[in-house]
Computed example of a mutant assay.
Amino acid sequence: MPHAPMTPAEYWDKYKPFKGEGPQPAPQADRFDWTQYTRHGPGAEVLGRPRRALELGPAEGKEAAHLARKGVEVTGVDFSSVQVERARAWWKDTPGLSFLQGEACAYLSSTPAEYDAIYSVWGAVWFTDPEDLFPHVLKRLAPGGVFAFSQAEPVAGSHGPQQMRGKWLEGREHELTVLRWQYTPEMWADILARHGFTDIDAQVLKAPEPGNLGTLMVRAQAPA
C-alpha cells in the first residue's frame, strides 16, 4: 500500500535522529557556536547585549539555552513539533526560555513581540526565501536590533534556491523538494540593504582545517 507523501514538517522531524539506548542526552550549551566546528569562530557577542532574542529554527535549542543562561529572554520557533518537544524536554528548567512550533514567516507576521536580536544558526533563514522573510524580520526588530545568521558557504556559481537532498529521507526524497537559499556574501549584503537593513557585514569564515567547508556569517541591524 503506498505511503503518504512526506510533509516539510515531517522532514525536519527526522533531523538528528537518536539511535542510542535510553533517553537522548541534551547537547552542551556552554558556548554559542555559529559554525559546524566546535569552538571555532565568533560566539554570542555577535548579537550584542540583547534583552529579548528570537531564534528561527533552533532544533536542539542549545544556542537559545546558552543565551537564556546569561539572562536573555529567548524564544525559539521551529517548524518541527518533534524538535520543539525535544528542546522543551531538555531545557524545561531554564528560566526565560520558550520554544514554539511554527513557520518563521507566519510567526513573525502574527506576533506583536519586539526583539533586540533575531538570529538563525544553520536554521530557518537558510531554508526560507529572503524576499519573504527579511521584511518580517525587520518589522519585529527593535530600533538598532541585530539580525544575524549562519549557514554553509555558498557553492561557487550556484545562487538562489537550491534543491537539498537529506540523508534521513530514507528513499522518500522524490516526494518532497527542500530548498535552501545561497548567495555570495556580497549578494546577501545587497539583499539586506534593499530591505532596509544597515551596518551589514557578510563574509565566509574559513574552516579550521584547509579544504573543509567554510561558514557564511552575516550580521546586520535595523535602523536606529
Rank of each mutant, 00 (worst) to 15 (best):
P25H: 06
E55M: 14
A106N: 02
T198I: 15
V204L: 03
D33F: 09
P50T: 12
A59I: 01
G96P: 02
S109D: 13
A207S: 15
T215K: 03
S81M: 00
W122G: 02
F99P: 02
P25F: 06
R88Y: 10
C105Q: 03
A193L: 08
R194A: 14
P223Y: 05
Q221L: 00
E60H: 14
W188L: 15
G20T: 05
G123K: 10
E85M: 06
A87I: 09
P112V: 03
P143Q: 07
W181H: 05
L47M: 12
K139V: 00
G123R: 15
Q24P: 05
R49T: 08
E131R: 08
Q28K: 08
Y15R: 14
G61A: 11
L108W: 04
F32L: 04
M187H: 10
A53D: 11
N212P: 04
A64V: 00
L108F: 06
K70C: 02
M1K: 05
E186I: 13
A53I: 13
P42E: 09
D13V: 01
P135N: 15
M1R: 03
A142G: 02
R31G: 07
L205N: 11
A220N: 09
V178G: 12
K14Y: 06
K14S: 12
S110H: 07
T111M: 02
G211H: 04
G22L: 13
Q151T: 09
R49Y: 01
V46H: 11
A59S: 14
V204G: 03
L54Q: 03
E63P: 07
Q24H: 03
F197T: 10
A224H: 10
F79M: 06
K16Q: 09
P185H: 12
G48V: 15
V137L: 12
V74C: 04
G171N: 00
P154A: 12
L67R: 01
F197Y: 02
R165A: 01
Y115K: 02
W168D: 15
A156V: 14
R31S: 05
E186Y: 12
P143W: 11
H174W: 06
T111F: 08
A4Q: 07
R172G: 02
G41L: 07
A64L: 01
F99E: 03
L141N: 07
D201I: 15
Y107F: 15
P95M: 07
L141S: 14
G214Q: 09
A117V: 04
K92P: 03
L192F: 15
G123S: 13
L205M: 11
Q151I: 04
D190V: 14
G41P: 05
G214D: 11
P2S: 13
T177W: 14
K139C: 12
S110M: 04
A156P: 14
Q36K: 15
A104E: 00
V146L: 04
P130L: 12
E55I: 06
T35G: 11
R49N: 09
T94N: 06
F149A: 13
P23E: 14
Y119I: 02
Q24R: 15
R52Q: 00
T128C: 08
D116E: 14
M1F: 02
P135K: 10
T215S: 12
